[in-house]
Amino acid sequence: MTRNRASARKAGTAFETQIATTLATHLDDDRIERRAKTGAKDRGDIGGVRVHGQRVVLECKNTARTDLARWAREAHDEAGNDDALVGLVVHKRHGNAQGLDQWVTCTVADLIALLTGRRPEEDQ
């Protein structure tokens, strides 16, 4: 069965809700929530995630085709809109229904920021 716009939106909403619920459960954090879309100044799909006292933006994707470069740019733009430390992409691992089994993608700079709490300087 192919997806139409409505079924794709429904699948995306369900995936975002699943990830928010999984994170809130395992991080024991009642601030984590699925965010409503806010247009041009979107601040990511999941809010309330923090590391080192700073915001982390999560951009969720439930699609058949992978486009990591575009998704990472989107997550970074949304992190800027939210004044967050990093923007990460959480994407559907097809064939795995559990929230804990889904993929998370980030740049090495994002990984360094997560581990240290600071964005690294550009490579010289």
Rank of each mutant, 00 (worst) to 15 (best):
G48S: 04
T116M: 06
L27W: 15
T2F: 08
H26L: 08
K10T: 10
G99R: 08
L68M: 03
G12A: 02
T17V: 03
R34D: 05
R65K: 14
L100G: 15
D28Y: 05
D101I: 01
D77A: 11
G95Y: 13
G87I: 01
A69N: 03
G99N: 11
A84T: 03
G117A: 05
A11C: 04
L85M: 10
Q54E: 07
A109T: 02
L68C: 05
F15G: 05
D28W: 00
V104F: 13
R65L: 11
Q124M: 00
A14L: 08
G44W: 12
V89W: 11
A14M: 04
V108M: 08
G53C: 01
T66Y: 12
K61A: 12
Q98C: 15
E16A: 12
V104K: 03
G99P: 14
Q102E: 11
D29F: 06
A69D: 07
R73C: 07
I19T: 02
G53F: 02
R50K: 09
V57N: 01
I46D: 06
L115T: 09
Q124N: 00
D101V: 01
T105I: 13
T66E: 15
R118Y: 11
E59V: 13
R50Y: 13
I46R: 03
D83A: 10
V49T: 04
T21D: 12
R50N: 10
A11I: 06
W103G: 02
A72W: 12
L27F: 15
V108G: 00
I19A: 05
T21I: 04
M1V: 06
A36I: 00
Q18C: 06
R5Y: 08
G80I: 01
E33S: 09
T38H: 01
L23I: 02
A97K: 14
R43D: 10
A8Y: 05
R73L: 08
R35E: 08
A8L: 07
D28Q: 08
R3N: 08
E33M: 04
A72H: 13
A97Y: 14
N4Y: 01
T105V: 13
E16P: 01
V104C: 14
R9V: 00
A109D: 08
G95F: 15
V108R: 05
A75V: 11
T25C: 02
R70Y: 05
T107M: 03
A8P: 00
E121F: 01
Q102T: 04
E74N: 05
E121T: 05
T107G: 11
P120G: 06
A8H: 07
L68V: 07
Q102V: 07
E59I: 07
C60P: 06
G48A: 08
A11F: 07
H94A: 12
R93F: 15
M1D: 02
R119P: 00
R35N: 11
A20F: 09
G87K: 05
Q102M: 05
T63R: 15
Q18H: 04
A20G: 11
V51F: 02
G117C: 04
V108P: 00
I32E: 07
K41P: 00
L100Y: 15
R73E: 10
R34Y: 03
N62H: 14
Q54A: 12
V49S: 09
G87F: 14
T13E: 09
V51I: 09
A64M: 09
N4W: 01
E121H: 11
G48Q: 01
T63F: 15
G87V: 03
V51W: 00
I46P: 06
